[in-house]
Amino acid sequence: MYNDNNAQTIVEYIKNFTRKNSLFMLAYGTGCGAIELPATLTSRYDAERLGVRGAATPRQADLLLITGYLSTKTLKRVIRVYEQMQDPKYVIGFGSCTINGGMYWDSYNTIKLLDKYIPVDVYINGCMPRPESVIAGFKELQRLIAEGKADGATKYKENLDWYRENQKKVLKNWPLVEYNW
């Protein structure tokens, strides 16, 4: 009964359980959606009861929130930050502008489609999403983690060339450093 397979399943289960209940969110407000994050983390909505808390540096973080539109200048920093994070790591795209450009569909300085540049696990729509929908997004991410489906980081490793190609199309004159995992 207690063969290796079962033991592994149990270990996997424990890993996923702790991962889903302890999400360290990187404190990086990339766009205007960051204004709803204080509200999400404070008394009325209190995301800390779900185990979501802030982390100061990318090394410690599991969760990267792209809070809204990404200008190309920020995209560089986001890619670098994302690559500095340690596996397993998750990305939540926050707001309509990460999904399809939103109201900035004709702006020359914002990217329109986030998942061409970094893998996204969960999208939250709305401009801007209310704290309730942010929490719903966290819940959805937790469900994916529990089922072992939040595998954006693996996707990124496997298709690194494709991602790099897309990134280079926007970021000219910018040496993309070697990604070591």
């Binding site: 200008s71 200048k73 920020t74 920093r77 109201m103 702006s107 300085n109």
Partner: peptide, 25 residues
């Protein structure tokens, strides 16, 4: 410049009423 969205350029492409969605941002 990390948050530059080119609002002023976008406003030139919108008509007067459509600017309201951009202004508050």
């Amino acid at each position: 410049g990390y948050l530059h969205r080119a609002f002023e350029k976008l406003i030139e492409r919108r008509n007067w009423m459509q600017t309201t969605t951009i202004l508050c941002r």
